[in-house]
Design a protein around this nucleic acid. Sequence first.
DNA 1: CTCATGTCAGGTTGACTGACATTG
DNA 2: CCAATGTCAGTCGACCTGACATGA
Lengths: 150, 150
Amino acid sequence: MSQEIGVLSRGAPTLTALLRMTAQTMVAELVRRIHDAGYPGISGAHHPLFENIDPAGTRLTTLAARAGMTHQSMSELVQTLERRGYVERIPDPSDGRARLVMLTPTGRRMVRRALREIIKLEREWTTAVRDAGLDGDLKQALATVLRTRA
Amino acid sequence: MSQEIGVLSRGAPTLTALLRMTAQTMVAELVRRIHDAGYPGISGAHHPLFENIDPAGTRLTTLAARAGMTHQSMSELVQTLERRGYVERIPDPSDGRARLVMLTPTGRRMVRRALREIIKLEREWTTAVRDAGLDGDLKQALATVLRTRA
DNA sequence: CTCATGTCAGGTTGACTGACATTG
DNA sequence: CCAATGTCAGTCGACCTGACATGA
């Protein structure tokens, strides 16, 4: 129990830490709810795929480009989710090189459920943040700031 | 250019994604500024150490406990920063088993500089967020919400 | 003897780069 | 021949768990 605890921000987390922790807590809660709804083996890292896949199926390279990652990384993601039954890969009829990544029926149900939970979670947290003394549209404000600064 | 792009949130990033991206962008900017100030080899992952080290030196296990990580992980962090000249380990005079992790003079200068930059960055971003239509203390609000929900 | 401190070895996750076969 | 699509192999960063030597 020394007087001087820490050189930086002991007892007063930085803004970046708070932002990170908030996102982390929300994602953990979402993952928990999806799991409890009967969809195991889904983690936050899988979000980029579900966020970017089209109902009619999407090529690996397109998915990777949209998610801002390499196609090799996206490939690994697809493999994992294929093994777990959420997506499947079918040959692209219009291009012999390509295959289309598609949601399975289970995958589609899971995504629908996830969407509902995301909406609920965002509503809960937005309310909580407002109750904590923040007025305005948090989501919209962050989006605006990021657009101008990133 | 299909009509249906993505199943989830195409064109409307989720709140968690926005929070994560904001934190990421801020940290990247901080790391860039520290690097430009003449302190190479510092990344966001090193923050937990600088955030928790005492001016008089701190034991590995204490650092790990404060940062909420294993002492093995913290040990690796310390090793890296020792190699780069920001911290050093000296035997604890009061305990033969322990060694005190201390900032080197360079480390101290770097931390001081980082602190100034963090304050500047937070001011910049807080202003930007307010200009984007958010009223109130973002940092304080997030801290409050996290305390009640985490 | 037990507990605290720290090291060593190895594993996991989620990304990355490079080299390459196949097809358009 | 050149570009696009994907796979295979290897690397890396930042964590983790387990086993252990040493000193309080």
